[in-house]
Amino acid sequence: MKCIIGLGNPGPKFDKTRHNVGFMVIDELLRRQGWTLDKEKYKAQYTVERIGTEKILIMKPMTYMNLSGEAIRPLMEYYDLDIEDIVVVFDDLDLPPGKIRLRKKGGHGGHNGIRSTIDQLGTKEFPRLRFGIGRPSVPMPVPDYVLGKFQQDEEAVIQDSISYAADACEAWMEKSFNEVMNDFNQ
């Protein structure tokens, strides 16, 4: 079984904010496949589907970003997933808007959702898809920026990149993570 986890904050207040690009990638993936998050357990909404012979778990933690690991770890334990069987999709201030980067491991880089995931899993060696949101062009607190919506001039590149990130997730359903990194890292 492979598991794709999109990080974000639940509720309409956070829809389409920079911090929710992980959720947006999951939504695009679900839309393409005709799937819905029809299960709820361990503070997460998820579905288990099948692509060929591979079972695929698609998940959104409902804990709010800073506690994401509290939903990820118990669901991984319940389904007996190994660390290499997951990919975590999240926003990254250090990449330009719309740029994606796949990595097999890394630190949290100040991202509290990844910090929580590292703390709960006890390792930073898990596959991830970082989705660039850039840094604010004017001085502002980081929380205000990440909880803000994309600017109108960013929307086209963000939509294209959400589609590209969903392409990478679909590729991982059938290929190794190394192959997907080689194919999709920009």
Results as ranks from 00 to 15, higher is better:
residue 109 G to M: 11
residue 114 I to W: 14
residue 103 R to Q: 12
residue 153 D to P: 00
residue 153 D to V: 00
residue 127 P to D: 06
residue 141 P to C: 00
residue 147 L to D: 05
residue 145 Y to G: 02
residue 147 L to F: 03
residue 101 R to L: 04
residue 120 Q to A: 15
residue 123 T to H: 07
residue 126 F to L: 11
residue 135 R to Q: 07
residue 150 F to D: 08
residue 108 H to A: 13
residue 117 T to F: 06
residue 143 P to H: 04
residue 140 M to E: 10
residue 106 G to Y: 02
residue 109 G to V: 07
residue 104 K to H: 09
residue 136 P to V: 10
residue 102 L to T: 13
residue 130 R to H: 10
residue 133 I to Y: 10
residue 141 P to A: 15
residue 101 R to C: 11
residue 118 I to C: 13
residue 126 F to R: 13
residue 103 R to F: 02
residue 117 T to K: 03
residue 118 I to Y: 10
residue 123 T to Y: 04
residue 135 R to K: 14
residue 113 G to H: 09
residue 143 P to W: 00
residue 139 P to D: 06
residue 121 L to E: 12
residue 146 V to C: 04
residue 127 P to G: 09
residue 143 P to R: 00
residue 145 Y to E: 07
residue 116 S to F: 10
residue 108 H to T: 03
residue 113 G to P: 10
residue 142 V to N: 03
residue 144 D to E: 14
residue 133 I to N: 03
residue 133 I to D: 02
residue 132 G to M: 04
residue 135 R to H: 10
residue 115 R to A: 11
residue 136 P to D: 06
residue 139 P to K: 15
residue 131 F to N: 05
residue 120 Q to N: 14
residue 101 R to G: 02
residue 106 G to C: 09
residue 116 S to E: 08
residue 106 G to P: 01
residue 111 H to V: 07
residue 105 K to T: 01
residue 127 P to I: 04
residue 122 G to C: 11
residue 133 I to T: 05
residue 134 G to C: 01
residue 127 P to L: 14
residue 101 R to T: 07
residue 154 E to L: 04
residue 136 P to Q: 04
residue 106 G to A: 08
residue 119 D to Y: 12
residue 123 T to E: 06
residue 100 I to A: 03
residue 120 Q to T: 07
residue 146 V to H: 03
residue 116 S to N: 09
residue 109 G to L: 05
residue 103 R to H: 03
residue 149 K to A: 01
residue 130 R to E: 01
residue 103 R to T: 07
residue 155 E to Q: 15
residue 149 K to L: 00
residue 103 R to C: 05
residue 104 K to M: 00
residue 132 G to P: 11
residue 116 S to Y: 13
residue 131 F to P: 13
residue 138 V to A: 08
residue 146 V to Y: 04
residue 133 I to Q: 06
residue 106 G to N: 13
residue 129 L to K: 07
residue 128 R to W: 02
residue 132 G to T: 08
residue 112 N to L: 06
residue 151 Q to L: 12
residue 139 P to Q: 08
residue 112 N to H: 14
residue 108 H to C: 05
residue 138 V to Y: 02
residue 145 Y to A: 05
residue 142 V to C: 01
residue 104 K to V: 00
residue 125 E to H: 14
residue 118 I to A: 11
residue 122 G to T: 11
residue 129 L to A: 07
residue 150 F to M: 03
residue 151 Q to W: 01
residue 118 I to P: 14
residue 153 D to T: 07
residue 102 L to E: 08
residue 154 E to F: 03
residue 116 S to H: 12
residue 106 G to R: 11
residue 136 P to H: 14
residue 142 V to M: 12
residue 145 Y to H: 04
residue 153 D to A: 01
residue 137 S to A: 01
residue 119 D to S: 15
residue 109 G to E: 09
residue 132 G to D: 02
residue 112 N to P: 13
residue 132 G to A: 02
residue 126 F to I: 03
residue 111 H to L: 12
residue 119 D to A: 15
residue 102 L to D: 06
residue 126 F to M: 11
residue 122 G to E: 12
residue 118 I to R: 04
residue 125 E to C: 03
residue 127 P to K: 13
residue 140 M to L: 03
residue 125 E to Q: 10
residue 122 G to P: 04
residue 135 R to N: 00
residue 118 I to M: 11
residue 123 T to I: 11
residue 109 G to Q: 12
residue 101 R to W: 06
residue 142 V to T: 15
residue 130 R to F: 01
residue 156 A to W: 01
residue 132 G to S: 05
residue 104 K to S: 10
residue 150 F to R: 12
residue 131 F to Q: 09
residue 116 S to C: 09
residue 123 T to V: 07
residue 155 E to M: 15
residue 108 H to V: 02
residue 155 E to D: 02
